[in-house]
């Protein structure tokens, strides 16, 4: 499903060259639930951005659902992102001017899907996350947990091959975080492939597999060893 080999990402300014990822290798199979953890500044978000085609990488090879993405232009990447990837963001990232129905509709419209099919998918997705009765509500009228569930519905409506979650419970209290996590587990049980980036090792422990990133590389530490590491990465320039 997701296969990165020897991927590196370098951010360059006039004065500094920062290696966010170096010789990064990862493979995620279909149906897996993988948690990616690591200290702040270790390269988790860079990995997520590259995995979700939000950012280009400097070197290496990345195949998403069998498609080598390196040679794709911006429009082709956008289409691939729209069709294959569903995002769940830490800050929910719902569009405040649109109600839930229209928010879930956003990625489907970019796919130029017929209106009836869009409506069916939106209603199904909102029902799946328990928000069918709130589809005319605006994000500001919902709790944080409901907003995150709406964001999950938006990710699901496109029936993506891969769900990428970026600290999905980071802005939620513990009860709402539990609800969202249970929802993600349920989705995984129904066959969704999920890659979740988190700094929360307790949440990570609930995933099928854990990957620990340190200094832009996949580490062979296990979770217990990772827990003993400092929270902020020492970054070489």
């Amino acid at each position: 499903m997701l296969h990165m080999q020897d991927v590196s990402k370098v951010y360059r300014t006039e004065l500094v060259e920062t290696h966010a990822l170096r010789h990064f290798d990862i493979a995620v199979d279909e149906g897996e639930f993988v948690a990616v953890t690591g200290p702040s500044g270790s390269g988790k978000t860079t990995f997520l951005n590259i995995a979700g085609l939000l950012e280009d990488f400097t070197d290496g090879s990345y195949r998403l659902d069998g498609v080598e993405v390196r040679s794709l232009d911006d429009a082709a990447r956008s289409r691939l992102r729209n069709e294959k990837v569903g995002f769940i963001f830490q800050g929910f990232n719902l569009i405040p001017d649109l109600n839930l129905f229209d928010n879930v509709d956003v990625p489907l419209r970019y796919r130029r899907m017929p209106a009836a099919e869009r409506r069916r998918r939106i209603e199904t997705a909102l029902e799946r996350v328990g928000l069918a009765s709130r589809m005319k509500h605006y994000p500001s009228e919902l709790s944080g947990g409901q907003q995150q569930r709406a964001a999950i519905a938006r990710a699901l409506a496109g029936e993506p091959r891969l769900l990428l979650a970026d600290e999905p419970t980071g802005n939620l209290d513990s009860q709402m975080a539990r609800d969202v996590m249970e929802l993600l587990e349920a989705l995984n049980a129904q066959g969704s492939t999920i890659v979740m980036v988190t700094h929360d090792l307790e949440l990570a422990a609930r995933a099928q597999r854990n990957i620990y990133i340190i200094d832009g590389q996949v580490s062979d530490l296990d979770l217990a060893e990772a827990a003993a590491r400092p929270l902020v990465a020492a970054r070489e320039a």
Binding site: L54, D74, R79, N82, I95, P107, R111
Partner: peptide
């Protein structure tokens, strides 16, 4: 700006 980034992340092309 953030909304535009979200739309791009959700699959909008530059043309869209």
């Amino acid at each position: 700006t953030r909304q535009i980034g979200i739309r791009r992340a959700l699959g909008a092309t530059r043309g869209q």
